Simulated scan of single mutants.
Amino acid sequence: MAGVIATEQTNLAAVSLLSEARFTKRICFSNPQVLVFVLTFAPGQELPKHRHPGSTLVVHVTGGSGVVVADGRETPVAAGDILLVEGEEEFAVRNTGSEALVLLASLSPNPSDPRYAQPVG
């Protein structure tokens, strides 16, 4: 949109780091209202089951394909999909495709546990 001025800006390609060793997580923005981060998975990599108590997770699949498991239900996902996961739902991700799976995710409100805002890989 013309005329919109961002107070913070990040380039998605610049923070999407692919590692053959394990999935990566890079923090884009963090304030009390929201935590925005990018998860990047090589083929076969996965994010173990976990929850986000007290927060809502929104995930936009920006590249690749895989499977999201929410409360035991497997859902195939591909670039362009957007998911809403409530904080009490158990959540996991697995790259089942042949290219990098890239997820742009946000947690709102930002969890009080500082571990959620730590980079991985």
Rank of each mutant, 00 (worst) to 15 (best):
A14P: 00
K49H: 13
S19V: 04
A117M: 03
D113L: 10
L18A: 11
P32S: 05
Q118C: 11
E90A: 15
A2E: 14
A92F: 01
T10G: 01
A105Q: 15
S98C: 12
R51D: 09
K25V: 13
R26G: 10
G66F: 01
L39E: 06
R73A: 14
N11R: 11
D81I: 09
A2D: 13
M1R: 06
A105V: 14
V69D: 07
E8M: 14
G63K: 12
P53L: 02
R51E: 10
G44M: 03
Y116K: 12
L103S: 01
G44L: 02
G97Q: 06
V59H: 09
F23W: 14
A14N: 04
V102C: 05
G72F: 10
T24M: 04
V61G: 01
E99H: 13
S65P: 00
S55R: 10
F37M: 14
A92H: 03
F29R: 07
V77D: 06
V93I: 08
P109Q: 05
D71C: 04
E90V: 15
D71L: 04
V93T: 06
K25P: 08
P119L: 02
L104R: 11
T96W: 01
M1E: 07
Q118H: 11
A6T: 06
F23S: 05
P48Q: 10
T24I: 02
R115S: 11
H52G: 10
L84Y: 14
L57I: 09
P53C: 02
H52S: 11
G3K: 05
G54L: 10
S16W: 06
G97D: 06
V120H: 13
P119N: 11
V120Q: 12
V4W: 02
P111V: 12
N11F: 08
G121E: 05
T40R: 00
G87D: 09
L12F: 04
V120N: 10
L47D: 02
G66M: 02
L47P: 00
S65L: 04
V93F: 10
E89Y: 14
T62K: 02
A100Q: 09
E20I: 00
A105N: 15
L104T: 14
A100V: 04
E89M: 15
S19A: 08
H50D: 03
Q45M: 07
D71F: 08
P76H: 14
M1W: 06
G121V: 06
V34L: 11
N95Q: 00
L12P: 02
E90W: 14
V34C: 09
R94S: 06
P111H: 08
V36W: 02
A13G: 15
G87Y: 07
V38L: 05
A42T: 01
C28S: 08
P111Y: 06
V34E: 08
T7R: 13
V69Y: 03
V61R: 00
I5Q: 13
L84G: 12
L84F: 14
T96S: 00
G66W: 01
Q9W: 08
V59W: 06
A2F: 13
F29V: 07
L83A: 07
A117R: 05
V85G: 07
T24F: 03
L39T: 01
P114F: 00
N95C: 01
V93K: 04
H52N: 12
T10N: 03
T96A: 01
T56I: 12
